[in-house]
Structure formats: C-alpha cells, structure tokens
C-alpha cells in the first residue's frame, strides 16, 4: 500500500543533520465516486477530444498546449519546453530556516503529509520530533514533488514529523494577514541541534518565496509573444463550403458579371 511504502523517499536535512525518511499521505478523502455508463448496455464511456473545425476525434500526437493571450489567439508550448522548466527531482528536503509555527496563517496550508523514518534514521528522527515539539518551531523547505517545486512546512505532530505543502503568497487572494508574534526559543536537551535551530530561526516571511517554475513559464510566454509566436484558432465561419458548390457558384457569378 502506498501509504506504507511512501510516495517519495530521501532525506530531510538541515545544517549537518540528515535523516532518511519516507513521505506518506496524511489524508485519504472518503469520496464516493461514480463512473459514466451507456444506459443501453452499461459500457463504461470514454472521454475523447474532438476538433470542432474538422469535426473529428484527435489522436494524442496531434495535441499541443496553447496559452490563450487574446480570444482565439494562443502561444503554444511543446512538452520539451515545459520539461525544460521543470525542477530537478530531488532526494532531499533541505530545511532552509526555522519559524514559529504560530506565525503561519492557516490560510497558507495546502496538503498534509507525514514523514516517517526509514531504516537507520529512527533515533535522530525522534530527537528532531521532540525538539520541534518543545520549541514550537516549523522548518521551511523547498521540495520537488510530482515535477513541481513546493514550499513546505515540517512540524512535529503526535510524535511524528508532519509535512504540509504551503500555498505561495502569489496564490492567496487579497485580505490575508499574517500575525507577526514571535516566540522565544526554549531550553533544550540537545545543545547542538537546539543551537542550530535557534541560529536558523527567522520570522515567517512568505514573500521571499515564489513558484520558480511559474515565473520561468511566464518569462518564456512573454518572450514567445514578443517573437510573434502567436497562433490563431480558425473562426467557425471560415469553414469552406462543399468544393463543388463553391465552384458552381463562382462560375455562375462570373458569367453573371460578364453579361451585365
């Protein structure tokens, strides 16, 4: 089962500490799902993409992505171009700073996961869980999952490390406010680990982070627009009539004009 095996494995690290972990989902939405069937014979229906201009089903190798810049005007993007923008798959969750978890407005929280210790990581893992619990700290990291770079918060929850993906500030609608209260670091058993955390503690300043891939994508779109790489969807009215009819009308029109 995916929950036990994990959807990703690697290490969580900060400063000189590196702990082998696996990422597992924290929720499994209990949705009741339905499929669409053909009422006559109960065949499972398939969705296919069709082209209105040709009135035909389109095979996957004839499909490209287009970003609409004006109605019916697009910048196309190939799979290769999109891949070139994707971040490298990473094997580490590198914590870059610690913040007071109480500073983070819950509106930032997106999707919850757990990190569970892999072989050989048990002891350091338990220590980190305990220190983070006592200090109420959360580690901020950048982490690539499913070809997207996420900003994540690692916290201590119920004796385990919880990882929550965060929304980028640019994704939040206006009106959000973050509290700026700041808790003082507390006494700690492990002096080294505690001191490192204290040294790396900062105010939660989400404005520092943005979605790199999206920024790069925007830059590429702007560049291609300037290079006039815009394509246009055919207007439905430009669809030509039956060739024989067009020819017969043209011929009639020509002889009519000659006689007048």
């Amino acid at each position: 089962m995916a929950a036990l095996q994990g959807i990703w494995s690697g290490t969580i690290s900060f400063s000189l500490v590196a702990i082998p972990v696996r990422l597992v989902p924290a929720i499994q939405p209990g949705r009741v799902t339905f499929h669409l069937l053909h009422a006559k014979d109960n065949s499972r229906l398939s969705r296919r993409l069709s082209c209105p201009a040709e009135d035909a089903l389109i095979p996957p190798d004839e499909i490209v992505r287009g970003y609409e810049i004006f109605p019916d005007k697009y910048i196309t993007m190939t799979d290769e171009e999109l891949e070139s923008l994707s971040p490298e798959r990473s094997r580490t969750i590198e914590i870059v700073e610690f913040i007071d978890i109480r500073e983070v407005d819950p509106v930032y929280f997106d999707h919850p996961y757990y990190l569970v210790p892999s072989k050989g990581g048990g002891k350091a893992y338990q220590l980190l869980v305990e220190i983070m619990r006592r200090t109420n700290k959360a580690g901020l990291a950048r982490f690539v999952l499913a070809e997207r770079e996420h900003l994540v918060a690692v916290t201590s929850r119920s004796g385990a490390l919880a990882l929550t993906t965060l929304h980028y500030p640019a994704d939040l609608l206006p009106g959000e406010v973050t509290s700026q209260t700041r808790g003082a670091p507390e006494e700690n058993e492990d002096v080294n680990m505690r001191n490192t955390i204290v040294r790396m503690t900062a105010d939660f300043d989400p404005g520092k982070y943005s979605d790199d891939r999206r920024n790069k994508l925007r830059e590429l779109l702007i560049k291609k627009t300037k290079e006039h790489a815009v394509v246009e969807a055919p207007a439905p009215s430009e669809e030509a009539g039956p060739p024989d009819l067009v020819a017969a009308l043209e011929e009639s029109m020509r002889t009519m004009k000659e006689r007048s």
Binding site: S237, A240, G241, P242, L245, V246, L249, E250, M253, K257
Partner: peptide, 22 residues
C-alpha cells in the same frame, strides 16, 4: 445552413462593399 452560408460568402467575395455574411 451550409448552403445559405456558402452562397452568402460567394456573394460577399464578389460584392464586398455591398454584402456581408458576418
């Protein structure tokens, strides 16, 4: 519909200042 549209477009082609199918 296809017939009337094709006729209208032919008319427009020959009399662009007088006719539009648009």
């Amino acid at each position: 519909k296809m017939f009337s549209k094709t006729v209208a477009e032919t008319m427009q082609k020959h009399y662009p200042d007088l006719v539009t199918p648009n």
